[in-house]
Amino acid sequence: MRPLVADIDLDALRHNYQLACRCAPQSHSVAVIKADAYGHGALACAQALQNQAPAFAVASIEEALTLRQGGITQPIVLLEGIFSADELPLVERHGFWIAVHSQWQVDVLLAATPLKPIPVWLKVDSGMHRLGFAPNETAAIWRQLSAAPSVARLHLMSHFATADARDSDYFHQQMATLQALASELKAPLCLANSPATLAWPIAHGDWNRPGVMLYGSDPLEVPNAITQQLRPVMTLRSEIIALRDLAAGEPVGYSGRWRAPKRSRIAVVACGYGDGYDRHAVDGTPVLVNGQRCAIAGKVSMDMLTVDVTDVSDAAIGSDVVLWGTARNGEVLPIDEVARYCDTISYTLLTGVLPRAPRRYHGRSA
């Protein structure tokens, strides 16, 4: 069979979740597993965390139902709330918690008569300017929902635009807005995403929402002592399927973008953009071959990519190739580093790995 596989280390996932908890010991940490757990497999990741995480968070009711059908019983937060009024009976039936960010959602809740009140996280737009109510209109809506028999366990939530920066005036502006609202309303808070969990204790609330950090990616512009403890969960691994010896000046791949600067050995690896590896990877993008650092040479193709292994004496057909993650000798190639060479972020690489690369789970509950 084709050797490409995405190895998923569930022990590393649990380690990263516990790190999030240690960052904010006074907070509850909801494990964010939207977008199929950032490409890692939502149900498998939820099952691995079900004895640790008090709640999970997803983007839509479809994602939440997949977890329920797989036996996950914890509360599940719908981070974008309902998309239509006819979803509310499903929310009630399955005990989902919902974000509320628009007036029409408020109206649906106020008109509803569920048998059991629905937990609600009211979203305030503190500066991200995507979803949520303006700060000056939030208090009135909060009081409406607080008085509604259809609503239970009301929290205030928001999202930071610049928490990944080492220092950010805008973060402090958002935080001041939220602190003022929370004080006025005596509202429990859910604010911290991964970077705020890792770097901004002031943002730690009743609930935090660690996401990409759970999968071993460092979301901060400048790593700190905590992010250096993160462990990669996904290792995208393949093998060398062919070797070519080239004279100096010979081109490799489409358009001959890379030319051998000297007599070189090129390895062909079974992985390409048809598997989700980013076609924008430039020459020099790092790869591990038998645990040794090498570099991509030439454009990524649909099913293959080419690597300069001139200095890897033991490179052979079948040699282990790590596109990101942990090699068998323990050497780590951070996905954040690969993302920079592709002019993107780790989120797009992780969520972009296609089903053609099978997930293979390891760890105590694999």
Rank of each mutant, 00 (worst) to 15 (best):
R2G: 11
P3V: 07
A6D: 12
A12Y: 01
H15E: 09
H15S: 10
A24T: 09
H28F: 08
V32I: 12
V32P: 01
V32E: 00
V32Q: 03
I33A: 00
K34M: 05
G39S: 09
G39L: 02
G39N: 11
L43V: 11
Q52H: 10
Q52Y: 08
A55Y: 02
F56L: 08
A57T: 14
V58H: 01
E63C: 04
A64W: 00
T66P: 01
T66Y: 01
G70D: 05
G71D: 04
I72L: 00
T73G: 00
E80M: 05
G81V: 09
S84T: 13
H94Q: 10
H94F: 15
F96A: 02
F96S: 03
I98W: 03
I98L: 11
A99V: 15
W104S: 09
W104I: 11
Q105A: 06
Q105H: 06
Q105L: 08
L109D: 03
L109S: 00
T113P: 01
I118L: 03
I118D: 00
P119I: 07
K123I: 13
K123L: 09
V124T: 08
M128P: 01
H129I: 02
T138M: 01
I141V: 13
L145K: 01
A147Y: 05
L154G: 04
F160T: 10
A161P: 09
A161E: 14
R166D: 12
D167F: 09
D169L: 13
A176N: 06
T177P: 04
L181C: 04
C190E: 12
L191S: 06
L191Y: 04
N193Y: 01
N193Q: 10
N193E: 13
A196N: 02
I202H: 04
I202G: 05
A203V: 11
W207Y: 12
P210F: 05
Y215D: 05
S217M: 06
A225W: 07
T227S: 12
V233E: 03
T235I: 08
T235M: 07
I240N: 01
A242H: 08
L243K: 02
L243N: 04
R244F: 13
D245M: 03
A248M: 08
G256K: 03
W258P: 03
R259K: 15
P261A: 06
K262M: 14
R265Q: 13
A267N: 08
A267Y: 02
A270S: 15
Y273P: 09
G274E: 14
Y277G: 05
D278Y: 10
R279G: 12
H280M: 14
V282R: 14
G284I: 07
T285R: 12
L288V: 10
N290P: 07
Q292C: 15
Q292P: 10
C294V: 14
I296R: 11
M302C: 14
D303Q: 13
V307P: 09
V309G: 08
A315C: 13
A316G: 07
I317W: 12
V322M: 11
A327I: 14
G330V: 08
L333A: 06
P334S: 07
I335Q: 07
E337R: 13
V338Y: 03
V338L: 03
R340C: 07
D343K: 15
T344I: 03
S346C: 03
S346R: 03
T348L: 04
G352Y: 00
G352H: 02
L354H: 12
A357S: 10
A357F: 00
H362F: 10
R364P: 01
A366C: 03
